[in-house]
Write a protein that binds this DNA or RNA. Sequence first.
RNA 1: GCCCUUGUAGUGAAAUGGAUAUCACAACGGUCUUCGGAACCGUUAUUGCGGGUUCGAAUCCUGCCGGGGGCACCA
Length: 587
Amino acid sequence: MEIKDFFQENTTVDFAEKHLRGLVAEAIKKLGIASALDFMLEHPAEETRGDYAANVAMVLARQLKKNPLEIANAIADKVSSPTLIEKIEVRAPGFINFHLKQAYYKKELAEILAQKEKYGSFELNEPKKIMVEFGQPNTHKAFHIGHLRSALSGLALAKLFKNSGYAVIKTNYYGDIGMQTSKTTWGMAQKALPEDFDNWDKHKRMKYIDDAYVLASEKFADKKIEIEIRKINRDIYNQKDTAATRLHQKIKKWSLEHLSAVFADLGIVYDKQYPESEVSEKAIKIVEENIGGIFEKSEGAIIYNGEKDGLATWVFRTSEGNPTYSAKDLALAFQKFEDYDLDLNITLTSVEQTDYFKAVIKILETLDGKFKGKYLHIPFGWVLRAGKKTASRMGGSVKGTDILQEAYKIAKTKIKELKDYNKDEKGEISKKVALAGLKFLILSHEFHKNINYNPQKFINFEGFSGPFILYSYVRARSILQKSHTKNLEAKLPSLSSGLKSEYELKLLKWLARYPQIARRACVEVSPHLVCNYLYELSQRFNQFYATCPVLTASETDKNARLALTAGAAQVLKNALGLLGIETVEKM
RNA sequence: GCCCUUGUAGUGAAAUGGAUAUCACAACGGUCUUCGGAACCGUUAUUGCGGGUUCGAAUCCUGCCGGGGGCACCA
């Protein structure tokens, strides 16, 4: 199943689009051409052509064997809507272009000011439950740039689903057991801990731990050391009490302190946390109970032979008797559905696990019909450096905390000296601006595509960037503050004669597109659509700002422009919220 | 080898099968006695190659070429 199937209903939320579609369908009926027809109603790229364009005549041209222009004209003649449509134009090769009345957009602006933070969000009568699993760090390895992408993408998806009216459960499934944690434990045991290690800064501590992992990964090639590490691994799985397993627990505690600080910094609050260690017993049970059915023994291990399903072969229990990640993913799925009775689970991981999850899902659906169409995997692309994957076992990964620090530092230098913000304000502002930059950058890429990480260019504060959006918001807010407006509703009557210039209208019309964008970004799992929308919105606001003075304008213009400014600020804030980006009042 | 994915200005990206393929960065030039210049306006340059489907293809199909990833005890 694909996720689109889950969101089949109400994918069009744009009132004008629905309305026009209905009018066109009616016109076709009147002409006796066709009863039902699939056609596009879109926004022309060139705005002067109109607000909406229908390609229906071109779709019909072939089956009717008629000139599309003729058909378009015939249809256009039959369409009328005195309240909504200003004029209809037919253009080659057969587009029917609709120009809407400005009053429609002005009404929409009033709607924004009335609904405020609710504008562009939807409610469902019986909200379906969606779990989003994302983040998935390892406790015994540093949180790196890939985790950062996972965390930020997952947060955005959770916000998008929630905005569309679904009940969302944000879940973290973290790796606190398995070979990589045993490697780290062995590495840490190689030298005495620094005396005051427990009091170290949690991020500095984590770097030290990560170094131990890198060391162990290097030494793992040595057969003798591999045996030592495997022993530690077995002891951890069997919950033995040894010096190594106690150290393993300590490292876990330090790591979790580091991780919860990172997630807090990113603005992520999980509803549920699943440690990998807590599903491993159940994992073994599931595998053993299904030998002969789904699983088979092979070379001492228990495997799933995917050949018959056109998939690869995966190991579920090692010849040492430990459950692998694959087995644990099965147990996790059962646990999730037991805990929450889900309508949909979405597991977010990087693209490398795509084929693997095909097998997991196939197995789950075979094990229990309740998973049918309800367990989905969505992959996101790599963050590459110089076009190559960075391996954390080589110590080459880019640490999440380093990126945050770097972004934070740059943001701080951008705050103009003449702004006499106090130290706390400066700190808070630069943190929010830096996060806006990072979140926007990562989310503005298509979900499944790779991102090239370039330290020099990665954190951008100009042009197509998070801070640019925030800056536009700050400008809008600044005008509103200075106007001392108490009651925006009172400004609304001025709308009917105000907002005539090009840039005012461009901004006004763009605001009305927000609900449809928010819905599309949800259905298509595409936060980058929100980024594109936001950037265009900010640009239009800045053009308006540069050409239309608000506070010094005539009373009518001033009132209308204040309403427009307030609408822009509101939609900027709502759309930023979908990306998990907080606004600032000054910067 | 098999499978998945990707290829768009110098660089990084966008574009529901639609009309003249957008942006940003970089380079060059302009706007201002700032409702906050992290801004606005302008100039230059782009769909890997070959077939096909379609009224219409960056987008769908297909072949080739290049990048990334996966394919047994690691997550």
